[in-house]
């Protein structure tokens, strides 16, 4: 499997990273270099192997469904590039 310019454009759009038209081709080359190299995993027989989803064998902890934190509006907004009247501010989303 190898990626072309259009695939890079689509993936960049999914990743929400603007890529200039002239950068698509070189980027495809770089990504193909990495993808060609990881192809060697196809040599491994993984029949019947369960994918590893937990690093250490332990059950995920559960906790009571209670309020443990809150009332931190100013802390949360402290690093916002733009905030107004207690809300994050962004360009118009709905026309």
């Amino acid at each position: 499997m190898s990626v072309d310019k259009d695939t890079v454009r689509r993936v960049a759009s999914l990743a929400r990273i603007a890529v200039e038209e002239q950068d698509l081709e070189p980027l495809a080359g770089e990504l193909n270099g990495i993808l060609d190299w990881v192809e060697q995993l196809n040599e491994v027989n993984v029949d019947g192997v369960e994918p590893m989803t937990s690093v250490t064998p332990m059950a995920l902890k559960q906790r009571a469904d209670g309020v443990t934190d809150g009332d931190r509006r100013n802390d949360i907004l402290a690093n916002a590039p733009d905030h107004r009247e207690g809300f994050f501010a962004v360009p118009k989303v709905v026309e």
Binding site: M1, V38, V44, V46, V49, E50, P51, M52
Partner: peptide
């Protein structure tokens, strides 16, 4: 093809 296979290989490494 990629992610699931890699997670299986990860199990083999473990």
């Amino acid at each position: 093809a990629y992610y699931l296979r890699a997670q299986k290989v990860r199990r083999l490494i473990l």
